[in-house]
Design a protein around this nucleic acid. Structure first.
Lengths: 244, 244
DNA sequence: ATGACTTTGTGCAAAAGTGCACAAGCCGAT
DNA sequence: ATCGGCTTGTGCACTTTTGCACAAAGTCAT
């Protein structure tokens, strides 16, 4: 690497954030790599090969290496990757150190689950606000954070400078909540409501839809039942493996 | 259509399931189309153009048309799509009619939320089992279904012939639960636990990971903050719009 | 030092997905 | 009947993602 390159490319071996541009598909996998590395780090593993790590993460080893190569050259040929070092580098890349302030709107079952998850220490997030319109729930404390009324949305966001908002409301309220979040400075939204959000350019929206996921499974299930005789199941070869 | 084609292609205008092979990316969007169609159908809309429907679904109109073309030729040139007819065709394609029996393992907040969602009538699913290891919760009734102990897993699955299982347990229990589900005939799994599952070929696993989603947002957020001066945000142009 | 062995990093080609642009086809007015 | 105006369905080119296969580069034993 860093040989004669046809295209001018900044080769930055120093610990600065790798400017390059990391493909979306890779970004989506980094958190998994990070989690698995956390596991094996705690288990005392010092070094790991791309092959081993790939199996633990349920991906192809070539893909893993290419993903990691986008962050920099953090491996050693003939040896593998230092678990601790790689763990740290990925953490830095995905902003794990920063404890991002997050506001969650809608404290139903889903909001609750999320508050519990993001509220746990050492995950890189800090729940700074829980908002709900149900007056019954206001004041209730979840994961150490008090539930506050919808009217407080703006002040809560402003107070902690939250830039990530989670919408766990019914679909009917989602767009209105979204608009209010954007208005007070939130630029990243995680939407659990089964509705399509309209946002201005520059805002990052991710959608998690339980119903959609189930229906995708149902579709494949139906395909399998419609024509069970096939060369073999041409389903995507699932090669996955977990940690504990 | 159905003119002289260079390639032999079965033109099946009859209501048989379109055998073709529907791309994964398309399958993932069909449930959204279906939901939006449900909305506008209830609103009394009779006909819709690909342009209108695409905006409501937050996608490109060409993409929408290509997606629909994989199901068959259900539109009318110069006019658009009959909402009711298209709605029905998509429903049939994704197996909406069938009320798939679903077993949910783990009745924490997440399991609860899912039970509520999938348990609602008219979504194409029927929660036939709620399983939890916590003896405190056993017997509790959620969305009309009683929570049963982990030991009953096999009998519950067998009793209703469930082929779709949802894992909403802690990560430490996920693989064991997964193995047991597969053992008794489940072939599709929706995994909410933050762990990578190992499954034999032919089993369909989908993963929903709250932590991963948040971290992807955090990554983009960090990118934006690291270098705020750029030609313009080269973020994916979000053109989304919701219904109500 | 040298050589055998191992594992990374990457060039390359295939596959999948996206979106433009336009011919094909349908409707309604004249 | 013919024409003009729409909208679908799709050919095509471009982008993104995937994974093979191998040179580059390191370790370890001798």
């Amino acid at each position: 690497m860093a040989k004669a390159k046809s295209v001018v490319r900044e080769v930055s071996p120093l610990p600065r954030s790798s400017a390059h541009h990391i493909p979306d598909a890779t970004v989506a996998r980094l958190p998994i790599y990070h989690r698995v590395l956390t596991s094996i780090l705690e288990a005392g593993v010092v070094s790991v090969s791309s092959q081993e790590l790939a199996e633990l993460c349920g991906v192809n080893s070539a893909k893993l290496r290419k993903d990691l190569s986008h962050l920099g050259s953090y491996g050693t040929r003939g040896v593998g990757y230092r678990v601790e070092y790689l763990h740290f580098q990925i953490a830095r890349e995905i902003g794990f150190a920063q404890d991002w302030p997050v506001v969650i709107v809608g404290v139903g079952n889903l909001g609750n689950a999320l508050a519990g998850y993001a509220g746990a220490a050492g995950r890189g997030f800090r729940v700074v606000g829980l908002i709900d319109s149900d007056t019954e729930r206001i004041g209730e404390e979840i994961a150490g954070v008090k539930v506050r009324p919808l009217a407080d949305l703006e002040s809560v966001v402003a107070e902690h400078g939250a830039t990530i908002g989670v919408i766990a409301t019914p679909a009917s309220a989602a767009q209105a909540v979204c608009d209010r979040l954007l208005m007070c400075g939130v630029t990243s939204i995680l939407n659990f409501a089964p509705s399509v959000l309209t946002v201005p350019e520059g805002v990052d929206v991710r959608k998690v839809d339980l119903g959609t996921e189930l229906q995708i499974l149902a579709f494949h299930q139906q395909q399998r039942q419609d024509k069970p005789r096939e060369k073999t199941s041409r389903r995507k070869p699932q090669r996955l493996e977990n940690i504990s």
